[in-house]
Amino acid sequence: MNQPEKSAPRLGSSLRKSVLGLVLFALVTAGAVSVTKLLTAERITNNRAEAEARLLLELAPPAEGYQLDLDQPLTLPAAPELGHKDAFQAHLAYRNDQPALLLLPVIAPDGYTGNIELLVALQLNGKVQGVRVTQHLETPGLGDKIEEKKSDWIHSFEGRSLENPEPEDWTVKKEGGEFDQFTGATITPRAVVHAVKRSLIWYQQEKGQLL
């Protein structure tokens, strides 16, 4: 009759050990997850920086005489029209020791699935040298045609300006504009077109201070 009373202390001790084991397991797991996230985030940041550097050099190729110091960016004041609520960094490329290209990071906030991040290279005469997509979450097979590796659509901006076409034609053809949309996807290309247009307008307004 006294056996249950004798086993009670052993039961309590076993329960405490189990709880302690679970707590230690949770702490170790949480620590491992935190370290993994930290290492992954650093790797992602480094990979993205390398990808952006490649695009900068692609838009301002040294083989064509452009000089670009990746370690000396320009710090520009906030420009909400470009998607930057705070100061941001751009790059100025030189040719024959003279300023030749302004390379701007631009954010299109109205993509189909969120922000579309761009790199817009502007010649100092207000013409587009080129545009590249640096990050997006658009629908594979539809909206991702903004990527150069998926289609040549992004090259349709080269040589364009606010005079070619006129500002009112800076939209997709479905809306009476100059630029093609994708089959089954209008929102994505329209967002990019409008973002490039905003970069041209911003440059036109700010070039006096920039240069």
Results as ranks from 00 to 15, higher is better:
Met1Glu: 07
Gln3Cys: 09
Ser7Ala: 08
Arg10Ile: 09
Leu11Val: 12
Leu11Ser: 08
Gly12His: 11
Leu15Pro: 10
Lys17Leu: 13
Lys17His: 12
Leu22Phe: 13
Leu24Phe: 15
Thr29Lys: 06
Ala30Phe: 14
Thr36Asp: 07
Glu42Gly: 07
Arg43Thr: 06
Asn46Trp: 13
Asn47Cys: 06
Glu50Pro: 00
Glu58Lys: 09
Glu58Thr: 02
Leu59Glu: 00
Ala60Met: 06
Pro61Asp: 01
Pro62Gly: 04
Pro62Leu: 08
Gly65Ala: 14
Asp69Val: 03
Leu70Gln: 02
Gln72His: 05
Pro73Ala: 00
Leu74Asn: 00
Thr75Ile: 04
Ala79Tyr: 01
His84Pro: 01
Phe88His: 04
Ala90Pro: 05
His91Trp: 15
Leu92Met: 14
Leu92Gly: 05
Leu92Asp: 02
Ala93Asn: 00
Ala93Ser: 02
Leu104Asp: 06
Ile107Leu: 08
Ala108His: 05
Ala108Ile: 04
Pro109His: 11
Asn115Glu: 14
Ile116His: 02
Ile116Asp: 03
Ile116Tyr: 05
Glu117Tyr: 11
Leu118Met: 09
Leu118Ser: 11
Leu119Asp: 07
Leu119Met: 14
Val120Pro: 05
Gln123Gly: 08
Gln123Glu: 10
Asn125Thr: 14
Val128Tyr: 00
Val128Gly: 03
Gln129Gly: 07
Gly130Cys: 06
Val133Gln: 04
Lys145Glu: 06
Ile146Met: 04
Ser151Gln: 13
Asp152Ala: 11
Trp153Asn: 00
Ile154Lys: 06
His155Met: 13
His155Tyr: 11
Ser156Tyr: 11
Gly159Ile: 11
Arg160Gln: 15
Asn164Gly: 09
Pro165Arg: 10
Pro167Ser: 09
Glu168Arg: 15
Thr171Pro: 00
Thr171Ser: 06
Val172His: 12
Val172Tyr: 12
Gly176Asp: 03
Asp180Thr: 14
Asp180His: 15
Asp180Cys: 04
Gln181Met: 03
Phe182Cys: 07
Ala185Met: 11
Thr186Asn: 10
Ile187Glu: 05
Thr188Gln: 00
Pro189Gly: 09
Val193Ala: 03
Val193Leu: 08
His194Leu: 15
Arg198Met: 07
Leu200Cys: 02
Leu200Asn: 12
Leu200Val: 12
Trp202Gly: 09
Trp202Asp: 03
Gln205Ser: 12
Gln205His: 07
Lys207Glu: 07
Leu210Cys: 06
Leu211Met: 13
